[in-house]
Amino acid sequence: MKQYKNYFSGEKIWRTICFSSIILIIIVFFMFIISLAWGSARSIYEYGINFLINVNWDPVFHRFGAIPFIYGTLLTSILALILAFPISMGVAIASSELLPKKISMVLDPFVELMAAIPSIVYGMWALFILAPFIREFLGPALKRYLGSIPLFQGPLTGYGYLTASIILFIMILPIISSLSREALKAVPREITEMALAIGATRWEAIRIKIGVAKAGIFGAVILGFARALGETMAVLLVIGNKPIVSISLFSSGATIASVLANEYPEAVSDPIYLSALNELALILLGLSLILNLIFLRIMRRHIGGKM
């Protein structure tokens, strides 16, 4: 091998070019952390830990607290997960276990197609179709039957945490369902056969399968959560963009991603304001990297790499 390399100097050049390419991409990755840390240095220095515990966000008076956005991000993402998990499991079970293969072969691509629709298209739909639907039908119904719970009190505009959570649920549904389906399909056939052989019903056999595939399903949920945290455009259009903390799901709010999209272009003339927004981006980057690494760990360990 060594000897042959010397005969062809083109080999060395080619290898160097290829190596520089991958190194360049890796450098770009680390530039994310470096540039955001550099960009938010001023805010970190000036506000320190207060940035993370202050509930006020008032750029005019330079009061910057991240709590409203962290709260909004976690609330909408968790609510989206609560909605998406059972339905995704239902879809995964139906397409991998219940439906005839011919139907699920046509159906699966359509479910996965949902993941390919750009978020601005979901945003338009959410803004003009979903939000009025929630204002006119779903919201009043929730108020009537669950109005005693503080979550469902307060004025109903159609724009707020609830609408944002529902559109997030729709956007992460195909991710969780198709990854869960793959996890279920990876379970050895013998397990189902054994369960059926000792007299389990089909549902009980599926439950055993879910138990075997639970690591993969957990990974799917983590990835769905990571996607929900960072989703911007659809949320931006329907959440109402107010930096407040409210227990009511009907209330307007904001997420880290939505405030970045909404305020960044205006903030460019004010270095401290910009630095505070950079710090929010750094927090979002940290959250999504941690969740993605957990997901990748699980996938590598239990599914064997290929996704």
Binding site: I22, V28, F32, A257, A261, N278, A281, S288, L291, L296
Partner: peptide, 24 residues
């Protein structure tokens, strides 16, 4: 290691890519 980095990079929210590109 490179695969880990690439997969993690693919999961970075697009809005964060925007902020970084603004800075760079």
């Amino acid at each position: 290691k490179a695969e880990y980095i690439l997969d993690a990079m693919a999961g970075i929210p697009s809005i964060v890519v925007g902020v970084v590109s603004y800075l760079l």
